[in-house]
Nucleic acid binder design. Structure first.
Length: 508
DNA sequence: CGATTTTGACCAGCGC
DNA sequence: GCGCTGGTCAAAATCG
């Protein structure tokens, strides 16, 4: 009577047929594994396929497998754990002699319990490592994006210099102004007059104001980054002052249809003000992050004037503290969105976008809109549309926004073309990964096996999906937070009940 | 009693 | 310079 036990502590590797080691390739329902096992009669048999769940062998070969619920499903992950499984053959010819059936059952139970404990411990270690890997992934991604951005900027600056040289030979000063790609900060002025202004004095005023903004914003706290956060974008030195100021004041706005007073994003917030904003009958509430002393992150929550069932949450700043798992999704997605906005603020977006990193980083189930009308550039992630609906492109804050960048949804499985001023992003094709915005479903089911074809479209998916789910349904958020907390063993904090109640009274 | 919210006052930027 | 607006501060009020 053979008793197979999977022991993850000692090295006997189960290779699948692709001979490519993958600890997550063992899926229920007949994972193929070439193993050598000893059978009941102690003769060596080669099993070309080991059906782990076969009822036929259940009485003889009992295999205990703890199914991993891996978050970053299609991450091609090397945990460094040297994950192996061992088939320990406890069966001997003389097994039947020594013990009674009851004792055998007790022994088996103890064995199973021991194995379960061991696997739970390893599972816990894996979860922690997954979390760390995901954080590192975010950091690396943004760093890579920044490097790409910097490289493109340098190339572009060279081109601009060449263009300037040529233009000065052939055009008047005004014509040069039109020929040179205009920076985003010039577009941020709310009126069309500013957008097309050729008056150099107005540009000087803009620079002057932005310089003041830098001085005000450049507090030590705002630059503090912890190891598991996406690092703040490094601004290339050769970027103009205007862009420098823009990068420090980027806002990410999330629009979600919700009856709740505030979407819970995993962070703790304290309300510090409320104002009636012009053009909106609903008050705007101001919150600051209270998860750490001196955290510079603030957010504004306001119902949309056009549709008061829609809640608009605008984030500004970067957390200077570790985030709970429930907050990572939102923070990562807003960070990616901000990155996208920053990329659009320069003239180097073409090459940058072609890297496709941004595309997958901001892959919400709906659309994103960039507004140049606000005092500071704002990117709006519109999560109010159902996943299969046709995106509605519209400006935010100002219908006369000069600058709308709709993003096609990806979840439909089709490829979306990003349009950016009809020229800058033209021709950009985003990946057409099919994906779901049902984050729990995504996390609990086996991933599509496309490790090689989509090397970087993995964890970003789950992050964006999580964000979509979180922001779209506050009730779901609570469940998600609880689920993540239980999964990660973390402490996903949400807004306080008091906060909820008060905001229900005011905003709801 | 400490934490949080409320709310009027204050400040800065911007347009006219 | 003045007024408007957005954003923040801080004392008072409220809550658990």
């Amino acid at each position: 009577m053979g008793n197979f036990t999977l022991d993850t502590s000692e090295p006997l590797v189960l290779f699948n047929k692709t001979s490519r080691w993958n600890p997550f390739s063992m899926v229920p329902g007949g994972a193929a594994a070439d193993v050598v096992a000893e059978g009941e009669d102690n003769r060596r048999k080669v099993l070309s396929e080991m059906d782990l769940f076969s009822t036929r062998n259940q009485s003889h070969n009992r295999v205990v497998v703890k199914k991993e619920n891996f978050l970053g499903n299609d991450l091609d992950l090397n945990t460094g754990l040297n994950l192996v499984t061992m088939v320990s053959n406890r069966s001997t010819v003389g097994d039947d002699i020594s013990t009674t059936g009851e004792d055998q059952t007790i022994d088996k139970l103890k064995d199973i319990q021991n194995e379960l404990e061991r696997m739970n411990i390893e599972n816990q270690r894996l979860r922690e490592m997954c979390l760390q890997v995901s954080n590192n992934y975010n950091a690396l991604q943004t760093h890579f994006v920044t490097l790409m951005h910097q490289q493109e900027q340098e190339l572009r600056n060279e081109n601009i210099q060449n263009q300037d040289q040529n233009a000065n030979d052939h055009l008047s000063h005004d014509q040069v102004s039109e020929a040179v790609p205009r920076q985003f900060m010039e577009l941020r002025q709310s009126t069309h007059d500013h957008l097309i202004s050729r008056d150099s004095s107005s540009e000087e005023k803009t620079i002057d104001r932005d310089t003041k903004t830098i001085a005000r914003e450049d507090t030590p706290d705002s630059d503090v980054w912890t190891s598991n956060k996406v690092p703040k974008l490094v601004v290339p030195e050769n970027i103009e002052h205007t862009n420098d100021a823009t990068m420090r004041k980027v806002r990410v706005s999330v629009r979600a249809r919700s009856d709740a007073p505030m979407i819970s994003d995993g962070c703790q917030w304290r309300k510090y003000g409320q104002k009636m904003a012009k053009g909106n009958p609903c008050p705007r509430a101001y919150y600051r992050c209270t998860m750490a002393v001196g955290c510079p992150v603030r957010k504004q929550v306001q119902r949309w004037a056009d549709d008061q069932t829609i809640l608009v949450t605008t984030y500004e700043g970067t957390h200077n503290h570790p985030l709970p798992p429930a907050a990572v999704a939102m923070a990562s997605t807003t960070s990616a969105a901000a990155t996208m906005l920053l990329s659009g603020s320069t003239s180097s977006v073409d090459g940058f976008m072609n890297s496709n990193l941004l595309a997958q980083a901001i892959r919400p189930p709906n659309i994103a809109t960039i507004s140049a009308s606000a005092p500071f550039p704002t990117i709006t992630l519109d999560l109010t549309h159902p996943p299969n609906s046709t995106p509605i492109f519209e400006g935010y804050n100002n219908p006369a926004s000069q600058f709308a960048m709709p993003l096609q949804a990806f979840h439909q499985g089709g490829s979306g073309a990003m349009v950016y001023n009809q020229s800058r992003f033209s021709g950009l094709q985003l990946s057409n990964n099919e994906w779901s915005n049902q984050v729990l479903q995504y996390q609990q089911t086996a991933p599509p096996q496309h490790h090689q074809s989509q090397p970087h479209a993995s964890f970003g998916h789950s992050l964006s999906a999580a964000t979509a789910a979180i922001t779209a349904d506050p009730n779901f958020t609570a469940a998600l937070a609880a689920a993540i907390t239980s999964i990660m063993g973390g402490n996903g904090s949400t807004i306080s009940p008091k906060n909820e109640e008060n905001n229900n009274r005011e905003l709801g």
